[in-house]
């Protein structure tokens, strides 16, 4: 059984697109989590000025549409002499946007850790930094995991916005074929299926991470 010309064009294009999507998602997710942890910690424990600065960052990136952020990065910044490649603009935009959301989850989790945990460490001679780094963050991470995972799943889906700054990923490739053959239904259902697979993989990985970080009774028990 031969595949029709349409499918012979579609599948390689989507495969190429999904690879680009993955290349966008992985660094954006990792970068987003790192920025989220840093910004979330600074927003909670940082000196006042830095705290305000990070609050401002989160407010701007949570308060404006991602499309606008990407437009500014790709089409706006060249006016200031800052040039991004399509890929660079997309990854930067995703990281900053994701980081802003992640910082909310991280901050919430940090604030939920009881003062006793902090005191327990301080009383043993831990410095403030050591306390936050070795005691508070590892616990907060486990509490934030659900929210952060959810944000990564959103990220997988909003990575489809990369094609508006001409970075040809899954949605962009699909769109090209769809316009060429004028067969929108099949193409976008196929694209949807690809995203579903990506999200399922991400959920599986998150589940593994959750198991790996699991501590008996953690989060349920209140001491």
């Amino acid at each position: 059984m031969e595949l029709s010309q349409f499918y012979q064009d579609l599948l390689p294009a989507l495969n190429k697109g999904v690879i680009m999507s993955i290349a966008l998602i992985i660094p954006s997710a990792l970068g987003g989590v790192c920025i989220g942890i840093a910004a979330g910690s600074l927003r909670t424990y940082g000196p006042k000025f830095i705290r305000k600065l990070c609050d401002g960052y989160a407010a701007v990136f949570r308060g404006t549409p991602l499309v606008i952020q990407l437009f500014v990065l790709y089409y706006g910044l060249p006016n200031l002499g800052i040039y991004f490649s399509p890929y660079g603009a997309a990854v930067t935009g995703f990281m900053l946007c994701s980081g802003a959301y992640q910082s909310e989850y991280v901050r919430g989790a940090l604030l939920s850790i009881k003062r006793g945990q902090y005191w327990g460490a301080q009383a043993l001679g831990f410095s403030s930094f050591q306390t936050v780094f070795w005691i508070i963050i590892p616990q907060a991470m486990r509490r934030a995991l659900h929210g952060c995972g959810n944000e990564i799943i959103y990220l997988i889906k909003y990575s489809s916005l990369a094609y508006i700054v001409t970075c040809m990923e899954l949605t962009g490739e699909g769109n090209t074929i769809a316009t060429e053959y004028f067969r929108f239904t099949e193409v976008f259902m196929m694209v949807g299926l690809y995203y579903l697979v990506l999200v399922s993989c991400a959920m599986l990985i998150l589940k593994k991470v959750e198991q790996w970080l699991h501590v008996p009774g953690f989060g349920h028990q209140e001491s």
Binding site: G116, Q122, A123, G125, F126, S223
Partner: peptide, 29 residues
């Protein structure tokens, strides 16, 4: 920090580190 190492404190609510085992609670400091 020196003072706190030399003057130990035991709390009413224990304040064990919830994410560490008994052994790790002792080794971490």
């Amino acid at each position: 920090y020196q003072l706190r190492q030399r003057v130990g404190m035991i709390f009413q609510e224990f304040n064990l580190f919830d994410h560490l085992t008994a052994l790790e609670n002792v080794t971490i400091a």
